[in-house]
Design a protein around this nucleic acid. Structure first.
Lengths: 199, 199
DNA sequence: ACGCTCGTCTACCAATTGGTAGAGAGATGT
DNA sequence: ACATCTCTCTACCAATTGGTAGACGAGCGT
């Protein structure tokens, strides 16, 4: 075990998550990651036998964290449909604001060969499927305006992962002198979602 | 001049646009591009002295095409605010559907070093600025619901570039058996935009 | 026939990539 | 004190990257 405060393996994982999220899996080399951790590349390869293993570990960590966050939010959310959607969207924004790279990794994973991306997609898709069927039931019951639930879920995914990771977007929003960054952005997006879903 | 039907330079440019849009600028090597064109890498470097030059040329071509399309749509669009927005959104979707890589390049350009990305951003930003000020004036005049115009423009950008290039999204939308792909998606998105902007 | 430019090629090169082999320092259990 | 195990290191390697140098042929005007 290392004498360092946080174990090397976890530091590598954290740095890799940030770099992969920011530059993509190909954009960040093992050398980059090792340098950022303050260790040699071969130490990285000691903890993760290959770069693919490291990527998988990062995908897994991201999926686990997102699933945990969203799952907790879903359980804690109120019953009333709009408030429920509001609570869940807000829960997804929390990790996005705290750590944009988290969703950056999700975004990057879409460019991986299909079978690799499954590491994330397979773990997230039950959540999305559940969200879709929830939206469907609420629509059937007349408590939400009709529309394609899959489309709604897709738009949520797009706005959250897109907005949290596109520098150009953040810049566009910050153009307005009265824009105050991500917090305001989140509130506005929730307002839009609410408006789009209003009965 | 080459004996080939379309000049080599243009074939290289077209293939590079597709590959860059699909895999990113780093993800597609000069060799990949050359192979796809049916020529040697050094022929690519003959037409474009360096990879950076090729990237710039692609960015330039994309910006030029998008600016032309949007500009024409803006000029041809009706005066009534909602119909106007509708027409312009629809115009942006046209190239997106015809050639997803076009917007994929825009998306990828956001990960370039700031001064390189300017090639696209600088050419698109006057358009966006114009859209923002149009939205502002319509809101001031009470013809559109209040909100952050920069945010609206950003969301349009996010949905268009995101949805047109994110395989995971397209898959999500196609999950529903009654979803019929991009055409339906475009219509739905327009409906959402209309709802979100409704006074 | 002459040289000239254009377009593509073969043959290299240096830097960077992911990855292997194995040495050696430190703690730990006996 | 010793052997062992954990962890990080130095020293390589093969493949791929973007890029250079220059040869070769086809068409051109003279």
């Amino acid at each position: 075990m290392s004498t360092s405060r946080t174990p090397t393996r976890e530091r590598i994982l954290a740095v890799a998550l940030d770099l992969f999220g920011a530059r993509g899996f190909d954009g960040a080399s093992l050398d980059d990651i090792a340098r950022a951790v303050g260790v040699r590349k071969q130490t990285v390869l000691y903890w993760f036998p290959s770069k693919d293993d490291l990527v998988d570990a990062v995908l897994d960590a991201v999926a686990a964290e997102l699933v945990a966050v969203i799952d907790a939010a879903v359980r804690a959310a109120p019953d009333e449909p709009l408030a429920r959607i509001d609570a869940i969207v807000s829960a997804v924004f929390r990790p996005a604001v705290r750590r944009p790279a988290l969703l950056g990794v999700v975004r990057e994973s879409s460019r991986l060969p299909a079978e690799r991306a499954h590491a994330v997609v397979q773990r997230l898709s039950p959540l999305i499927a559940r969200a879709v069927s929830y939206l469907e039931s609420e629509m059937d019951a007349g408590r939400l305006r009709r529309g394609d639930p899959g489309l709604i879920a897709a738009m949520g995914y797009a706005t959250v992962t897109g907005i949290a990771t596109e520098p150009a977007l953040l810049r566009a929003v910050a153009w307005r002198p009265d824009a105050v960054g991500l917090r305001r952005l989140r509130d506005e997006l929730r307002a839009y979602l609410r408006a789009a879903l209003a009965p």
